[in-house]
Amino acid sequence: MTLTPLSSLTVVLLLMALMSPLQAQDNFKQQRQALVKEIATDLRSSDAILDASELDPRVLDALRSVPRHQFVPDKHKHQSYRNRPLPIGYGQTISQPVIVALMTNLLELKASDKVLEIGTGSGYQAAVLAELVDKVYSIEIVPELAERAAEDLKRTGYDKVITRHGDGYYGWEEQAPFDAIIVTAAADHIPPRLLKQLKPGGRMVIPVGSRFMVQHLVLVKKTQDSDILTEQLLPVKFVPLTGDH
C-alpha cells in the first residue's frame, strides 16, 4: 500500500491524538513562557508602570507559574495563552493576561501582605496573587462562579486562597484590614466600607471599562494619615495628546 497524502494526514492526526497529556502540558508551558515574554516586552512602554520602566520580575514569575488553561472553560482552552480575555459564562470573562500583570504590579505586594479580591471570576487572578503573598481572600457574588473557582483553585493547588460566595460591597470585615484590594468587578463608585478595610499605606486597583476592553486602571492609595488619592492609568502608552508638541 502506498501512502497517499490523505492517509499520511490520518497518521499524523492519529499520532496527535495519541500524544500524552504530558506533552500537551509541556506545550501549554511553552506557550505560557512565550506569552509572559511578550507581555514583558510590550509593557516596557505602558503608562501604568509607575516609578520603573519594567514590570516587577516577581509578577512575571507568578504569571509564568500559574497554569491559566486550568481556569479557562474547555471550549476556549486552546486560546488560554493568547493575550486576550476569554468568556467564562454568566457574562463574565477571565481577564486579559496583560491586564492581570498590570493590576498585580500596581499593588506592589510583599510576601507578608494580606490581599482581598472582589470578584473571583475564574480564580486566575487570585492564583496569581497567591504566588506572591501568603494570604489571599476572594469574594464572588455569582454562586455558580464562586463554586467553580473554589474547585479550580483547590485542584491547581492554590489552597491558600480563601474564597467566599457573597456581596463584595461590604468587603470582608472579619479579615480586615488588608494591605491591598483588587476589584475585578466594575463599580459605579468605590464602596466606602472597602476603603475602610484598606490599611493606611495600602493600595487598591480597579479596572474601568467593559468585560472585553479595559479602558483604564484606577489605583487607589490610602496615605499613612488615611487620606484617599487615586491615579488613573492607561494600560498603553498614548501620550502626549496634542501631536508632537
Binding site: N83, M213, P235, F238
Partner: peptide
C-alpha cells in the same frame, strides 16, 4: 497608525 502600532498591548479601546 499610532493606535494600530499599540494594538498588541491592548490599545483597542483607543
Amino acid at each position: 497608525p499610532e493606535i494600530m502600532s499599540l494594538l498588541d498591548t491592548g490599545s483597542i479601546f483607543l
